[in-house]
Design a protein around this nucleic acid. Structure first.
Lengths: 309, 309
DNA sequence: GCAAGTGGTGCAAAAAACGCATCGCTATTA
DNA sequence: TAATAGCGATGCGTTTTTTGCACCACTTGC
């Protein structure tokens, strides 16, 4: 899109906060980039950047203008997507921001299912905790977000939610594997691996622990699910997960690969909601909108009783 | 705005339905314009226009793209307006579509009042009946519309209304000038000048006449208020107007320049509403938003009892 | 006080846009 | 049916714009 070039350049400079750095990324010389910016500023009638010794920074006018550029880019993408949709083949690009929970099973499954019908559509999946995902929606860096509790910003528009209880994961030989439901007091003195405070799971656990004035024997804190799952096989520790992050068999209580999952009683730790949504007021590109529909369908199939639309 | 050139050109071709005609308006050769369009179509990956022997016409993709261009232009205007507003001087351009009623006294007064404070703001005032004004809002050719009954489209967002009774205008020597309020049956066999069917006044009159199963002695039908006002001095005919279209003295029942106005009893002809509004969902440029505020203020001063917000 | 950054500028080369002349096509008109 | 007028598309030489190089003026950090 030739007519977008100058605008893309300004966006890049705003992100890099430096003309020379942006020029390098854009594979042109800093002088050409500099002059494009001066030209736009001249046309606007006011500077968009403050010049600092260490680079540049958007001024108020620049903030307004860059916001315009980003909404404009997003709208152009939507229009292109709709136009591509006219010609039969669904073409397009979908950007999803999500917490780690959905990355292992849910998103791969849904994307495979979607691409089996529309293989011209491409994806960007970025792993981000809730707050960052909401910011990415607002700056139009992503189209859709999956956020597991809590929703912070009012400009996040939830399209569907599904209730998810917190599960304990452990080796199938673990002493707690014999319970159908885990109570918090069962976990006293049992070493646990906790997700970091950015995770909704951790925040729900904290609510339950505060209520009971309890503390867990935290042996390790990590954002890595891969680490947690693998470590559980080596030691008699407990990890935490929500059903959507588990293989379907494990979510149903059966063991898999030596691991087993058991829900925590919802009287001890409240259930949370996984939100699927987008930026309020945005019209999504066709591909993104259809992909969201499919995610909701898939959620309905996996958790028929717990889906809210 | 150099980066908008290609987009403006496409918009122009879409409006003219001809590359050569658009080129003439844009003061370039048809060949240059033709190549810009081919280039954009190439970048989009699909044609935007159907080529006919008599010119070009937007195809479906083109409709989508041109709609994008227009919203983009409107949003850019808003951003420019906000940026200009940052530097203290309010600068900008306001486009108003209105029926004839407000053109004689109300709009000139309000614009003069506005420009006495913000003389860098410029205006486009286009006279259009309700339906066309709503279409102009939807295609982003105008920012604000003043429409006197009825509102047809659901994407028109009313911000304020004021009730307006239909008045009879006549020479002050006219036999009906002695009544404080005119009843429809007074008008039997008295020659009248009617506004055309596009006018809200005409439509309200029709409602009253239908109810009473009456017909007026229509001597002439015209959209021109200038004609009507001047003709009333020459013959014993009646014209129709709403208060906002009258000098304030006449609206208060006093004669002016040999003419006088008397309201029709609202039991005979229902009162109508003058709507001030814009396209639903649009964020107006600063100048337009402030101008709308001032119009509403002015309405409140002129018709303190009849304003709804 | 020097080195390593930054954004800005003069000038020549490269690239893009433009205007002219002309083609091929279609609908209208004689 | 043949001539004509109007349309968009294209080849080519010219003009305008954009780019890259070399360099300046300036600030920051050591």
């Amino acid at each position: 899109m030739r007519f977008m070039t100058s605008l893309r350049f300004i966006d890049a400079v705003a992100r890099e906060k430096s003309i020379r750095k942006a020029a390098e990324k854009l594979a042109i010389t800093s002088t050409a980039l500099n002059r494009r910016i001066l030209q736009i500023e001249d046309e606007i009638g006011q500077p968009l950047f403050e010049r600092l010794a260490s680079g540049v920074r958007l001024n108020t006018a620049g903030e307004l203008f860059v916001q315009h550029i980003r909404t404009q880019q997003a709208d152009l993408a939507r229009v292109q997507s709709q136009i591509a949709d006219l010609s039969g083949i669904r073409r397009g690009h979908v950007r999803v921001a999500s917490g780690a929970e959905t990355l292992r099973h849910f998103l791969p499954d849904v994307i495979a299912r979607y691409r089996s019908e529309h293989n011209a559509v491409t994806f960007d999946i970025s792993r981000q905790h809730g707050e960052a995902a909401e910011a990415a929606l607002a700056s139009l860096e992503t189209d859709l977000a999956l956020i597991f509790e809590p929703i912070r910003r009012s400009d996040f528009q939830t399209i569907a939610t599904t209730r998810q209880a917190v599960y304990c994961c452990m080796a199938e030989t673990h002493e707690l594997a014999s319970f159908d439901t885990i109570r918090l007091h069962h976990l006293l003195d049992i070493p646990v691996i906790l997700p970091t405070i950015h995770s909704g799971i951790r925040q729900l656990l904290n609510v339950g622990l505060m209520r009971r004035n309890m503390q867990l024997a935290t042996m390790l804190e990590t954002d890595s699910q891969e680490f947690t799952q693998n470590y559980l096989l080596n030691e008699r520790v407990i990890g935490f997960q929500i059903p959507i992050g588990l293989p379907q068999n494990m979510a149903n209580g059966q063991p898999e690969n030596g691991l087993i999952a058991r829900p925590i009683d919802s009287a001890d730790v409240p259930q949370g909601k996984l939100h699927i949504g987008h930026l309020r007021g945005r019209v999504l590109p066709v591909a993104a909108a259809k992909f969201m529909d499919l995610m909701i369908t898939e959620l309905g199939e996996r958790f028929p009783k717990d889906l809210d639309q």
